[in-house]
């Protein structure tokens, strides 16, 4: 049962995030949907690197250090996703700064009203 779950969950999150970005009008909700989309992608990458029956890539004992190749999960997707999560936070900070600026400048965060304004 745990075979298919995480692929399905990550594709579900990606689909949810995409729908949220397309259909929402409030800029903060668009940012939340973007966050869900990015979480789905991260989950997908980590679950591609998972090998059933193996343990986390921390070699905490001597015998594990000697023969670790067939015993640990892939560490490269985890390193990439670690980077991606932090970058997602940076993106969120810039997006929220933009939302606050938008609220101050135009009085609203509704993106459908912005395309009528000539910057």
């Amino acid at each position: 049962m745990n075979a298919l779950d995480f692929y399905a969950l990550s594709v579900f999150l990606i689909g949810l995030g995409l729908m949220g970005v397309f259909l929402n009008r409030d800029f903060v909700k668009i940012l939340i949907s973007l966050s869900v989309l990015e979480s789905g992608v991260n989950l997908l990458i980590v679950s591609i690197g998972y090998v059933r029956g193996r343990i986390a890539p921390i070699l905490f004992s001597k015998e594990l250090q000697a023969s670790a190749v067939g015993k640990v999960v892939d560490p490269v997707p985890q390193a990439l996703v670690l980077t991606a999560i932090v970058i997602g936070l940076g993106l969120l900070a810039v997006g929220l700064g933009m939302a606050v600026w938008m609220h101050r400048r135009f009085g609203t965060t509704d993106v459908s009203e912005l395309k009528d304004l000539a910057g």
Binding site: F6, S39, L43, Y50, R54, I55, I58, L82, I85, V86
Partner: peptide, 19 residues
């Protein structure tokens, strides 16, 4: 919790603290 179940404690810690 999903990252922990996928045997990725570093990523789980990062997701918990950051997200």
């Amino acid at each position: 919790a999903s990252f922990y179940l996928l045997q990725a404690p570093d990523v789980a810690m990062a997701e918990a603290v950051i997200s």
